[in-house]
Design a protein around this nucleic acid. Structure first.
Length: 847
RNA sequence: GCCGGAGUGGUGAAAUAGGUAGACGCACUGGACUCAAAAUCCAGCGGGGGCGACCCCAUACCGGUUCGAUUCCGGUCUCCGGCACCA
């Protein structure tokens, strides 16, 4: 009888003790394979997303182990971060204690799922042995000018009580809490990721193993645009206002210029303005709007600066306006306005009654005046002096070149990407290793004094970081002058830790370096990385950046961390609710397609299928599932129900089906244990058993191919087919039995990466070697060769017949057989015009 | 608005390079075993027509390329995701 509880525990203990999954390092002669799943935050609660993510990785790792690779399959904990702090505030437990307890708990859960990790490399980012190296990187980056401090407007989450990076804000909403983000002006540390913008963009083209959507998301995020800087002289001074534009073809249509109120010119304009109070009021209003608002589609408003500029080509006087929609941080903060060909400028011109000058006409018919909206399509230039008649697409370059030749402009490239703000005004993170000295300013801690340790025994009196109230932490001496100084009390964004953990895994215990260059260059890049798509522009962009920095600092000899990326879909489920709110799945039952509560049989509303979430109670606890069906069933289901990159819809019936399949395997293998033990595979099989023999070897080929393509669902279905075939097969001779034995043995070996416990147990029952140390089976070409093949006969592309012919039949022979048949009633002309033969597959008769 | 991706039975999904559409699973139906039920095993299962070996329709919709299109091309619709006052 298949008893998953006993079997799974037994094998988990064996694997834990044996160290079979340990990576052997750079000295091992075998080819390496680095299999990595995004490491978890140790929340203490395992959810189905974890089960799915790590099950996918485990199949691949176990496959490559048995294919003879030196596999690095590590695990660790992304253990700094806010939840620990929030728990500390609520429950009065120090974050360190809470975190370490959760790690212990999650480690047990991972054992329970039978994952093939190299536990000897387990790493937690909240340990000083880990984050000390991050502090060293920080200082070296600082010395290289890749880190700087800036007082600027940032995103502030009132719930997190800290600053967030641009990447951590989605539509003005905190990525964690879903609460609105405020704007605040705060001094904080930045990583100069913009310095790498071009390389981050260019290298995307060299990552064929990444999904297109992730690459596209990163391209969007980096947001490169090429254009022209054009200088406009002030009418009343020698100063210049430079604009950035991607539409130099519309330069002759400029009727005003708009600028951001945050621009450095503003102070001077205010001073000189006769209506200073009014201007100040406008500026304050716009700034307030920028700080508070999340909806960016507010009404366009402006204010005349009192200044005029000279158009660089026509010499006309052009008014300069403040405009609330001009972004200070993009381009130069000043924009040339072409109301006829830009909708924002059009709206603005209408409101303030500014001239609208058409300079591009569509090729077919001229625009009807007055315009009702801006014309933004390409066309032919008009009202543009020497450029009249030029196609607007050509005029971009012509006008740009002309302006540059006149010395009034230059080519410019702008990125949407902003520098990465990494300061967090929170406690549970890596201390930023910087010191403020009244005499020497802000200076880095001495390398030999690292790590700057985060005190772990702390008490929270409120939401603010306890570090700010701990003189024993922040009081120090200046590493330069030796005088009294104070430490930085902000900590780093936890995305810094996750930017390089995959490299630490290569040499996780190194006491005097973050990792050995030799080991990291050998094991990296990660051959296969697996995680959720939600990290497409956060973690995955940061870690690419960090890798390039570490390469430039001489730590690593590669510039991209991940060769192949798989973004797995979410685990989803319908939700249930009634008047009193959401209900857990085990509080309802189904009858005739409708749902009712268990408690009082009242009807239940069914919500749409969405990501499992605690708030909607549409969750299944992996622990209950493992308890009821076992880890093998849980793993098999998440792999079988959908391809890994798609969302997976949870279905209890589907789980049941997978469990049933494992029983079917058990029930056919165990009675045949003796023949599996005794009978050796045959080199050649003829007669009745040939079909099963071929099927067995076809399945070996298919399962291997499908695992390598990440089509686990079809790999599993191929094994199911083979199991079904063994059920149908009734052996009569000794040879028949040998074929059956081989099939069953093969099923155990192929199924192992998906369901490792039951297959090891069956192997033991059948007297086979332990599967972890048994190579993945290979197929015999001989078995794949068939005597007969089925040729499909189409007439004009429609299936009409099938014939069975010898595999050695020539095209002429097949064609003759087909022509001998009568297909006249399907032929339009009544006679055969042409016969197309696709060797081994089909014949299409055309006529 | 711009940029990606997807749309296949009652249902989760297959179809690797344009070649038998719906493998495998679930649900359902029937049968065997059983006093009975469960479990298990066996069989059927896109829609329509015919007693029938068979025929017609069908991969969101319209059109094209091709001997042949779920697959390639153009257009339309819907859904999902990313970016968005970026000049």
């Amino acid at each position: 009888m298949y008893d998953h509880k006993e079997i799974e525990k037994k094998w988990q203990e064996k694997w834990r003790k044996s160290g079979v999954f340990e990576y052997k390092g750079a000295d091992d002669p075998r080819p390496k394979y680095y299999m990595l799943e995004m490491f978890p935050y140790p929340s203490g609660r395992l959810h189905m997303g974890h089960v799915r993510n790590y099950s996918i990785g485990d199949v691949v790792a176990r496959y490559y182990f048995r294919k003879g690779f030196n596999v690095l399959h590590p695990i660790g904990w992304d253990s700094f971060g806010l939840p620990a702090e929030n728990a500390a505030i609520e429950n009065k437990i120090p974050p360190a204690k809470w975190t370490y307890a959760n790690i212990d708990n999650m480690r047990e859960r991972f054992y329970q799922l039978g994952f093939s990790y190299d536990w000897s490399r387990e790493t937690a980012t909240c340990r000083p042995e880990y984050y000390r190296w991050e502090q060293k990187f920080f200082i070296e980056m600082f010395n290289r000018g890749l880190v700087y401090k800036k007082n600027s407007e940032v995103n502030w989450c009132p719930k997190c009580n800290t600053v967030l990076a641009n990447e951590q804000v989605e539509n003005g909403i905190c990525w964690r809490h879903g609460c609105p983000v405020e704007k605040r002006k705060i001094e904080q540390w930045y990583f100069k990721i913009t310095e790498y913008a071009q390389e981050l963009l260019d290298c995307l083209d060299k990552l064929p193993g990444w999904p297109d959507n992730v690459k596209e998301m990163q391209r969007n995020w980096i947001g490169r645009s090429v254009g022209t800087y054009i200088d406009f002289k002030f009418a009343d001074s020698d100063e210049t206002a430079t604009v950035f534009t991607t539409r130099p073809d519309t330069l002759m249509g400029v009727t005003f210029v708009s600028m951001a109120v945050e621009h450095e010119f503003t102070a001077k304009f205010l001073e000189e303005a006769p209506n200073r109070a009014e201007m100040q009021a406008f500026i304050d209003e716009v700034k307030r709007l920028h700080l508070e608002t999340r909806d960016e589609n507010y009404e366009k408003k402006g204010f005349f600066t009192g200044k005029y500029l000279i158009h660089p080509l026509t010499g006309e006087k052009i008014p300069l306006y403040f405009a609330n929609f001009v972004l200070a941080g993009y381009g130069t903060g000043i924009v040339m306005a072409v109301p006829a060909h830009d909708q924002r400028d059009f709206d603005f011109a209408k409101k303030y009654d500014l001239p609208i000058k058409i300079v591009i006409q569509p090729e077919d018919k001229p625009l009807a005046e007055p315009l009702t909206e801006a014309y933004t399509e390409p066309g032919i230039l008009v009202n543009s002096g020497i450029f009249d008649g030029t196609k607007s697409t050509d005029a971009k370059k012509r006008i740009s070149d002309y302006v540059i030749k006149e010395g009034k402009g230059r080519i410019g490239i702008n990125y949407r990407l902003r520098d990465w703000g990494i300061s967090r005004q929170r406690y549970w993170g890596t201390p930023i290793p910087m010191i403020n000295c009244p005499k020497c300013g802000t200076v880095p801690e001495k390398i030999e004094n690292l790590p700057v340790r985060l005190p772990e025994n702390v008490e929270f009196s409120g939401v603010t970081s306890p570090l700010k109230d701990m003189p024993e932490f922040y009081e120090t001496t200046c590493p330069v002058c030796g005088g009294k100084a104070t430490r930085e009390t902000d900590t780093m964004d936890t995305f810094v830790e996750s930017s390089w953990y995959h490299m630490r895994y290569c040499d996780p215990k190194s006491p005097d370096a973050p990792f050995s260059r030799r080991e990291v260059d050998h094991a990296m890049p990660v051959d296969q990385y697996i995680g959720g798509v939600e990290h497409a522009v956060m973690h995955l962009l940061y870690t690419r950046f960090f890798t390039k920095v570490l390469a430039d600092l001489g730590y690593v000899g590669f510039r991209e961390p991940v060769k192949n990326l798989l973004t797995q879909g979410m685990v989803c489920m319908e939700s249930y609710s009634n008047d009193s709110g959401y209900l857990y799945p085990d509080e309802v039952y189904k009858k005739d397609g409708k749902y009712f509560t268990v408690s009082d049989d009242s009807p239940v509303n069914v919500g749409r299928v969405e990501k499992m979430s605690k708030s909607k109670k549409n969750v299944v606890d992996p622990l209950q599932l493992i308890d009821k069906y076992g880890a093998d069933t849980a793993r098999l289901f998440v792999l079988f129900a959908a391809p890994p990159e798609k969302d997976l819809e949870w279905s209890e019936d589907g789980v049941d089906g997978c469990n049933r399949f494992l029983f079917r395997v058990w029930n056919i293998v165990v009675p045949n244990a003796e023949i599996i033990n005794k009978l050796k595979p045959l080199d050649k099989v003829d007669g009745a058993a040939k079909e099963l023999w071929s099927k067995t070897h076809e399945t070996i080929k298919k399962v291997g191919d499908e695992i390598e393509r990440f089509h686990f669902n079809t790999a599993i279905s191929a094994i199911m087919e083979l199991v079904n075939a063994t059920y149908k097969f009734k052996p009569e001779t000794e040879d028949d039995k040998a074929v059956l034995a081989e099939s069953l043995r093969t099923i155990i070996l192929l199924l192992n990466p998906f369901a490792p416990h039951i297959t090891e147990e069956l192997a033991e029952i059948c007297g086979m070697e332990q599967i972890v140390s048994t190579p993945f089976p290979t197929f015999s070409d001989e078995a794949l060769v068939k005597d007969e093949m089925t040729i499909v006969i189409q007439v004009n592309g429609k299936l009409r017949d099938k014939i069975s012919v010898s595999t050695s039949a020539t095209a002429a022979e097949v064609e003759a057989l087909v022509r001998a048949k009568d297909f006249s009633k399907f032929l339009k002309s009544g006679e055969i015009k042409k016969v197309i033969y696709v060797p081994g597959k089909l014949v299409n008769v055309v006529g």
